[in-house]
Amino acid sequence: MRKALYLLLFVALTALSSCGSDDSIEPTGVNEIIVDELAYNLVSANGSGITGTATLTRDSNDNTTILIELNNTNTEEHPAYVRLNSAAEGGPILITLEPCTCAVSTTVVTQLNDGTPIDFDKLLNLDGHVSIQDSPDNPDLVVAIADIGTNAN
């Protein structure tokens, strides 16, 4: 019984400590090297105070990854999307990203939600923006945003 209690405690502590920050971008496979990278600054929206970066990478196997790293937030989940148009215009969701959990999201991107293929170069030429939402319970409130592709300055 005592061993089971210690095992349960170990598992709980491991789960709680898994929200650490990793400052490096990891390739998506064993022998891959990042060959292109472009970071966009996420700015706070609607008084949230949440900022961060959205980093697009291409690795040596031509995989495209979008890494979201948030600042000034806790471990709560924030849905994340690539949307059409500039941040000022707003627009429909093009790509549903992995939610930001523990302030980080990593998504390998190969296609839009409708199945249209997309890669690093097409993202750089996209009329789009990244939006971070408040929570799954409040998905209409944008808390951080960044213009990407042709909208970025």
Results as ranks from 00 to 15, higher is better:
V82F: 06
T106E: 14
T96F: 07
V108H: 06
V142A: 03
Y81K: 05
G47C: 05
T107F: 09
P79L: 08
L7I: 14
P27A: 07
H78D: 03
A15R: 09
Y6K: 13
V143Y: 01
D140Y: 14
D134Q: 13
A15W: 14
K122Q: 15
F120A: 00
N72W: 05
V43C: 04
N72M: 05
C100W: 00
S135K: 06
D119E: 10
V108N: 11
L94I: 03
H129P: 02
D114N: 15
P99K: 05
C19Q: 10
Q111F: 07
T55L: 07
S44E: 11
L56K: 04
A88Q: 14
L123K: 03
L97T: 02
V35L: 12
A144M: 03
T53I: 11
L8S: 13
I93T: 13
K3T: 10
A80P: 03
A4T: 10
D36H: 13
D62L: 13
P139C: 08
V142N: 02
L13P: 01
V43T: 15
S24L: 10
V11F: 15
L94S: 01
V142E: 03
E32P: 01
N153K: 12
L84A: 07
A54T: 02
A80T: 08
P99F: 04
P136Q: 10
D23F: 13
D59A: 04
I25M: 10
I68Q: 00
K122R: 15
P139H: 13
L70Y: 03
A4L: 15
D134H: 09
G49P: 03
Q133F: 02
E76W: 05
S86R: 06
P117L: 09
E89K: 11
F10C: 06
I25S: 04
I50H: 00
A146I: 01
V109M: 09
N85A: 00
V143R: 00
A88I: 07
T96V: 10
A152Y: 08
I132F: 03
G47K: 07
A152S: 15
A45W: 03
P139Q: 11
